[in-house]
């Protein structure tokens, strides 16, 4: 992981993060796009204008943008205290979010088997996956990048920001069914 995260260019990692959000949000983004495309005439059949294409392309923009924005803000606030290590913390975060998204994405396919399970899952699964990934991330960065006396502060600051950001981003904006 440390080798991987340092080898991969941050722009490529950012793009991978965007793609992972696109995959995770695909099934929830199809509804709004179906509505928009209903009113286009003629009802295009071209695969390039299809719902899946648009839903994939645009569905991930908002959560990706919010994640980048929140992490940028978080690490800016931590920089005076932690210094250069914040770059590593930020870089690592992307990989953990990508991992969470890669777990969420195949689970959204449950919709094809049982829409009800998918609806219930849309409430629980993202929270469980992102929270799990975040806890692993905290554990990883504290062990790897943060010296012992600073761990409590890093934990408090990152935890507080996650606790504030998640309900805002996921519950209200990131396409949950309600």
């Amino acid at each position: 992981m440390p080798v991987l995260e340092k080898k991969i260019d941050s722009r490529i990692a950012g793009f991978c993060l965007y793609l992972s959000f696109c995959a995770a949000e695909l099934f929830l983004a199809r509804g709004p796009f179906a509505r928009i495309l209903s009113y286009m005439s003629p009802p295009w059949q071209s695969v390039w204008l299809s719902n899946i294409f648009f839903a994939f392309l645009f569905g991930g923009i908002f959560p990706w943008g919010m994640t980048e924005l929140v992490s940028r803000f978080t690490f800016r606030t931590l920089t005076p205290y932690l210094g250069a290590v914040c770059t590593d913390l930020k870089r690592s975060l992307r990989f953990f979010v990508i991992a969470a998204n890669l777990v969420i994405a195949p689970l959204t396919l449950l919709y094809l088997i049982s829409p009800l399970v998918a609806v219930a899952g849309a409430v629980v699964i993202p929270f469980v996956c992102y929270t799990g990934a975040f806890i692993l991330y905290l554990f990883y960065v504290c062990r790897r990048y943060v010296d012992k006396p600073r761990r409590s502060r890093v934990l408090t600051q990152l935890g507080a920001l996650y606790a504030i950001a998640y309900p805002l981003v996921a519950t209200f904006f990131a396409g949950l069914p309600l």
């Binding site: 929270t131 006396p149 600073r150 502060r153 934990l155 606790a163």
Partner: peptide, 26 residues
Amino acid sequence: VFALYLALVVLLASVAKRLEKKYPPV
């Protein structure tokens, strides 16, 4: 989910407190 969320907040706070006690921040 909200209950889990609260549990997470409490967990993080208690871990942070424990760490603070164990390794006093400079």
